[in-house]
Write a protein that binds this DNA or RNA. Structure first.
Length: 673
DNA sequence: TTTCTGGGCCTACAT
DNA sequence: GGCCCAGAAA
């Protein structure tokens, strides 16, 4: 037993923050405007529970939006409580990670195998594409998938899916079939993680009670972006003993398209009428001008609950406005400004972020930064896991973990080339469907007894045989021995290394692929070292649940390019909000679909409030798309920012000429020191 | 006949 | 980078 740690000090907190931290049992809502010290409140609340109220850390669950946020929160709690042991057993995780844990432990009650696969977006699309092909319907899989995903986030089962019109009935039938296929493969998709956990808790009371007892104290970050499924899970998980604290900012709700409800706080207040309310309004991040600009944009939302943020950080510089003739010009001007500001203000490159609406916007900025020899990171763009070699390797790992995982099997069956094509696979699939056996069994039979599976050519049969031998050997390697060594053998001996080199466009690309593969091997090695009981299943879960924010390079000494959605929760001294024009903010899709532009307004608000000191808005007068030149108009939200906050060409930049000159000479001098 | 290869097209926001 | 289609290659 560890000695009781010394109670943490609450001296640095303002009165509202302190209320939120020391609130005892029951429901608690914390309205935390941008930059008002939300994470501080959560971590201090955890610290307070542990050190003042002697709650064992293992009884506390903190739910965050991303794994990255979870890791940061854990680190901050560690920093708060010097006695490490006191926080041992604390659970900080995302909803999805928590559900994986629940389902690995207790999913067998639902008939879910312990080694179930987790399907990502491309697996889902592949599955849907297959169904649509079977039904001879020509339709983009993404559209059907979006409908299914939205239904799941709203807790609508295939049986409960509406049949009001032909479209609904069609989606319903695809949805039903999709779920059957997933179940047959021992697989769940991302949304299912939530749904299955909910079903598990509602069907098996004793399982629910077990988890409830485990976490009497629950804290939820970014509560405004919780969807119906997540909220339901939360309500199942909390039995009313202990405390349930939800923290968030309805002005920063930007995930309605993912099934988050318009006003989660209102729902919470209805469900827990006795909930204590705390509102945090003192902003510790931004200058008054930035807050005024943000306020101008957000205040226009009809029916919004007014809360005025204030700060003591002074006016700061005026807000910059950069207008480019086209996307490249916008980027060039932004980078020029960034260069000067970095130099004049004696900033680090880390202090700068370029915020974009869509990933496609990053290209011109990357080009301009490269041209200026300024290092940068694009956060969460084409992720590590989208790379061909990584998908090949994880395909193998997934198949070895669960040989019913058809998506993985199809990915790797002809990698490296084994002479198996569409015809061979179609023949095997036909047999599998006719005889209700898994696809892999059909392949196995085609090899063992060639005549039983019609339509498989000699070449394909030889390929199947080769694949079966290889995976049998690999499975043995992974189950018996050192997983890291087994992965290296897979890369070296299964022909993948040669395959990646041979199919690369340039030798350099081949090298990069091998490096990518070795990076995955290092990730496995790190996992094996850290985990108490390393398993392939568990490692794969970790990989599936990694968020796109996590695989980014260290941003030290680099400018950050990041989407508005991914930037939520972050802050930078200098922020460029790019593409402030109709089409991006608000996005064309939100206008076309006649959706509420309020969410676009909130997204702009999120962008503005990332800035600590200097904010620059930029837009382009035209953009070319598919060779076409499109004229662009400035965003309507620009009109909502009070004119006097925006710098005119006559205004002095942050650094005066003298300062500029002084900095120049001192940096030249540094070169010689 | 089946697999392989090259070129055109397209791509919100993401756990 | 993936998908789809057309034509080359085995």
């Amino acid at each position: 037993m560890s000695a009781t740690p010394r109670p943490i000090s609450l001296a640095g907190l303002n009165p509202e923050q302190r209320q939120a931290v020391v609130h005892s049992d029951g429901a608690l809502m914390i309205f935390a405007g941008a930059g008002t010290g939300k994470t501080r409140v959560i971590t201090n609340r955890i610290g307070h529970l542990v050190t003042h109220r002697r709650v064992p850390a293992g009884r506390i669950l903190a739910v965050t939006f991303t794994n990255k946020a979870a890791r940061e929160m854990r680190e901050r709690v560690d920093g708060l409580i010097p006695k490490r042991e006191a926080v041992k057993g604390l659970t900080v995780s995302t909803f999805h990670s928590l559900c994986v844990r629940v389902l690995r432990d207790d999913g067998h009650h639902l008939g879910l195998p312990q080694n179930f696969s987790i399907f990502g977006e491309s697996d889902q699309k592949g599955l849907i594409r297959g169904i649509l092909t079977d039904l001879a319907v020509d339709m983009p899989p993404a559209q059907v998938l979006a409908a299914i995903s939205l239904a799941k986030n709203r807790l609508i089962t295939p049986e409960g899916y509406p049949e009001e019109n032909a479209d609904d009935s069609f989606i319903k039938s695809v949805y039903q079939r999709y779920q059957t296929l997933l179940a047959g493969m021992g697989a769940v998709d991302f949304d299912d993680l939530m749904l299955h956990a909910i079903r598990l808790f509602s069907t098996f009371g004793h399982v629910k009670v077990g988890w409830q007892r485990r976490f009497p104290h629950i804290l939820v970050d970014e509560f405004q972006d919780t969807n119906q499924a997540q909220y339901t899970l939360l309500r199942q998980l909390w039995d009313g003993s202990g405390s349930l604290a939800v923290v968030g900012d309805d002005d920063q709700a930007i995930y309605a398209w993912r099934g988050a409800e318009a006003d989660m706080f209102a729902r919470f207040a209805e469900d827990f009428p006795k909930a204590r309310k705390v509102v945090l309004t003192q902003n510790y991040r931004s200058t008054s001008r930035i807050l005024a600009a943000a306020g101008g944009v957000i205040e226009k939302i009809p029916g919004r609950a007014e809360k005025r943020l204030w700060s003591q950080l002074g006016d700061g510089p005026k807000i910059g406005l950069i207008v480019g003739t086209d996307a490249d010009d916008e980027a060039t001007r932004v980078v020029e400004d960034l260069n000067v500001a970095c130099f004049a203000g004696r900033h680090e490159l880390t202090d700068f972020a370029i915020l974009i609406r869509t990933n496609a916007q990053s290209r011109p900025f990357e080009a301009a930064l490269r041209q200026a020899h300024i290092p940068y990171v694009v956060v969460g763009a084409t992720g590590f896991f989208d790379r061909a070699e990584i998908r090949d390797l994880t395909g193998y790992l997934r198949f070895l973990n669960n040989d019913a995982d058809e998506a993985a099997l199809r990915r790797i069956i002809n990698v490296p080339r084994r002479g198996i094509g569409a015809q061979g696979m179609a023949a095997a699939a036909r047999y599998a469907a006719d005889h209700s056996v898994p696809l892999f069994d059909a392949m196995d039979r085609a090899v063992a007894a060639p005549d039983t599976v019609p339509g498989v050519s000699g070449g394909a049969r030889a390929g199947f045989a080769q694949f079966i031998d290889l995976t049998a050997q690999l499975r043995f390697d992974f189950e018996r021995g050192d997983m890291v060594a087994a992965l290296h053998r897979l890369i070296e001996q299964a022909g993948l290394k040669e395959y990646w080199q041979d199919t690369a466009d340039t030798p350099r690309q081949g090298e990069l692929r091998l490096e990518g593969a070795l990076e995955l091997a290092r990730m496995l090695a790190r996992y094996v070292q850290r985990a108490q009981e390393p398993t392939l299943t568990d490692f794969l879960s970790h990989l599936s649940l990694l968020d796109r924010l996590e695989d980014d390079k260290d941003s030290k000494g680099r400018v950050t390019i990041i989407t508005l959605h991914a930037a939520k929760g972050l802050e930078f001294p200098n922020v460029y909000l790019a593409g402030m024009e109709e089409g991006f903010l608000p996005h064309t899709r939100s206008v076309e679909e006649n959706r509420d532009v309020a969410e676009e307004r909130r997204l702009t608000y999120v962008g503005i409030t990332r800035a600590q000191r200097r904010l620059v808005l930029s837009h382009a007068q035209s953009r070319s798309r598919y060779g076409e030149r499109l004229k662009r108009t400035p965003s309507r939200f620009l009109d909502d920012i009070p004119r006097h906050l925006i710098a005119t060409p006559d205004d002095e930049p942050e650094g005066t000429n003298q300062e500029l000159a002084a900095n120049f000479f001192s940096s030249v001098k540094n070169l010689f020191d």
